[in-house]
Every structure is written in C-alpha cells, then in structure tokens.
Simulated assay, not measured.
Amino acid sequence: MDGGGDGEMTLAFELAALQELADPSAVFDGARRWSKYVGVVSEKPTYVVTNFTRKERIRQDFFSGPRGKAESLESVRDQFDTDRHVFVGTSDADRDLADEVGWEYLPVEEAAEAAEWELADEAEETADDDGHERDDWP
C-alpha cells in the first residue's frame, strides 16, 4: 500500500478487519511508516477495542469510543488533516459507510496483499497441529 511516503494519510481499521490479521501489532507498526495517523473504529463497546489493542500492544492515535463508526470517521476526518483518509474494513456495509463519510475504502484482503500483511487464516494454514511452521517440511 502506498501512502505516498510523506505520512499524509490517516488510516482507520475496523476492529473486525484488524482481527483478521495474523499480527495486528506489526501491521500498526508498519502502517506508521507511511501513515501519519492510525487507529481503530468499531460499533463494539470501548472496552472491547481497548482490551484487544492492549493485548496486541497496539498504540492507536484514535479509536471510536462510545460513538458509532460513522460519527467516529467524521470526527477523525475533522481532527486529523491529511491528504487521504483510508478505511480498512471487511464488508459491503463498511464500503458503503466509507462512501457516505468521504473516506477511501479498502477491503482487508486487498490491504493485506498490497502491504504484504499476513491474514490470520493464512497463518493458521501454514502451521501444523502443534503450531510449528510448515516451511521446514520437505
């Protein structure tokens, strides 16, 4: 994914999209190299987002809090003045929401492919039943 290299992008992940990634913390760290602001939005209660981001050791620049996704994305757009605002989501509803609030939409699968992030289901497929990586198999 190309943020232009100037950090002039705000990147928001729907919590469900972040949960589909094998290493959300590494994704956030990598995204910070080409994004000025990175955060999480969700319809879930604040404690769900907070618990997930703490567990994954993710430092977010913003999160939705008690607001819904639409209000959160509008607020983030108003507060964080960047050239691009990109919303990574998982559904047609996320795509529609991005269109409604003036954000670019990127499905998590496309974002993962472009940025070379591993999806959680791909990581599970490469591990044997004991959790060992299969790349050492003949």
Score class of each variant (00 low, 15 high):
2 D>I: 06
4 G>R: 08
5 G>M: 05
6 D>L: 05
8 E>Y: 01
9 M>T: 13
10 T>D: 00
12 A>D: 03
12 A>V: 03
14 E>H: 14
14 E>G: 06
16 A>S: 14
17 A>T: 14
18 L>E: 04
19 Q>V: 13
20 E>W: 07
20 E>H: 09
21 L>T: 05
22 A>G: 03
23 D>M: 07
24 P>M: 07
25 S>L: 01
25 S>V: 00
26 A>S: 09
27 V>N: 00
27 V>T: 05
28 F>N: 04
28 F>S: 02
32 R>W: 13
32 R>P: 11
33 R>L: 12
33 R>I: 05
33 R>Q: 14
35 S>C: 14
37 Y>P: 02
39 G>R: 08
39 G>T: 11
40 V>R: 10
40 V>E: 07
41 V>H: 13
42 S>H: 14
46 T>Y: 08
46 T>E: 14
47 Y>L: 13
47 Y>I: 13
48 V>T: 12
48 V>G: 00
48 V>P: 01
49 V>I: 15
51 N>A: 10
52 F>S: 07
55 K>Q: 05
55 K>D: 02
56 E>Y: 04
56 E>A: 07
56 E>G: 02
57 R>Q: 09
57 R>D: 10
59 R>N: 06
59 R>M: 07
59 R>I: 06
59 R>T: 03
62 F>W: 08
62 F>D: 02
64 S>C: 10
64 S>H: 06
67 R>F: 15
67 R>T: 15
67 R>K: 15
68 G>M: 12
70 A>V: 08
71 E>F: 07
72 S>A: 15
72 S>D: 14
73 L>F: 12
73 L>I: 12
74 E>F: 01
75 S>I: 05
75 S>H: 10
78 D>C: 04
79 Q>T: 13
81 D>H: 08
81 D>L: 06
82 T>N: 07
83 D>T: 13
84 R>K: 14
85 H>E: 13
85 H>K: 14
85 H>Q: 13
87 F>W: 09
87 F>V: 12
89 G>A: 05
91 S>W: 04
92 D>R: 07
93 A>Y: 08
96 D>P: 04
99 D>E: 15
99 D>N: 13
100 E>P: 01
100 E>C: 02
102 G>P: 01
106 L>S: 06
106 L>H: 05
107 P>T: 04
108 V>P: 04
109 E>Q: 12
109 E>S: 11
110 E>R: 11
112 A>N: 02
113 E>C: 00
115 A>E: 07
117 W>H: 01
119 L>K: 13
121 D>Y: 15
121 D>R: 15
121 D>I: 11
122 E>D: 14
123 A>H: 08
123 A>R: 14
123 A>W: 06
124 E>L: 15
127 A>I: 00
128 D>N: 13
128 D>P: 01
131 G>W: 09
131 G>C: 10
132 H>N: 11
133 E>A: 01
133 E>G: 07
134 R>H: 00
134 R>N: 04
137 W>K: 06
